[in-house]
Amino acid sequence: MRQYWWKILSIVLLLYTFIAGLLIKVPTIGNLYETIRNLFFHVPMWFGQLILVTVSLVYSIMYLRKPKPHYDIMATEFARTGSVMGVLGLITGMIWANYTWGAPWNNDPKQLGAAIALLIYLAYFVLRNSMTDLDKRGRVAAVYNIFAYFIYIPMIMVLPRMVESLHPGGKGVEGNPGFGGDSLDPTMRVVFWPAVLGWTLLGTWISTLNVRIKTLEDKKHFS
């Protein structure tokens, strides 16, 4: 039987996030005020996206080692859901930035990095769909996906830490973008990490639904 306990876990965690995320007491930091609650909704988009594209990367590597069509489908669909979450992350970030940094787009290194990384992932789908030979398409897409991932990581995690940034964790800015040590208030941590897990599980759920549809379609095509 198909396992579904993690789907229920996702529902429970996100219900908890939405309720506790709005109701718990939050610390007042800078000019953030109540918008600090966006940490429970905007930031998990990026954490979830990172996990989803990492799953995609793993399946791409597996496909190159053993070209099973299933691996190719998994890699594509996880990258697709990851990209959707990335777009949502970018939009929610712009809304947040508009009210705390003064403008939706500040050419912040992390904003630029995230935008470039998203374009690189869009190119993955363009490249993939441009090929009709299934075997070739799978292999080229997998190679490109690995390349995309290793551009994506420096773009959103390394470069923003090396230059001045409005995001936490930049040069001369307090806090750690990876939320290590004391930089995340303990009261916020009890909502933040469940939120990350909940969104990641929801992303996985949507990805697997797409994988199952794609598998059904392929079965119909080749039988």
Partner: peptide, 27 residues
């Protein structure tokens, strides 16, 4: 606000659960 966003979340989950079951039936 909590009631509204929780309703939206639940609605989306009902939708995705139904989709999931439809795909299971097709499979």
């Amino acid at each position: 606000v909590v009631a509204v966003i929780v309703t939206i979340l639940l609605g989306l989950y009902v939708y995705i659960i139904r989709l999931d079951r439809k795909i299971s039936k097709l499979e």
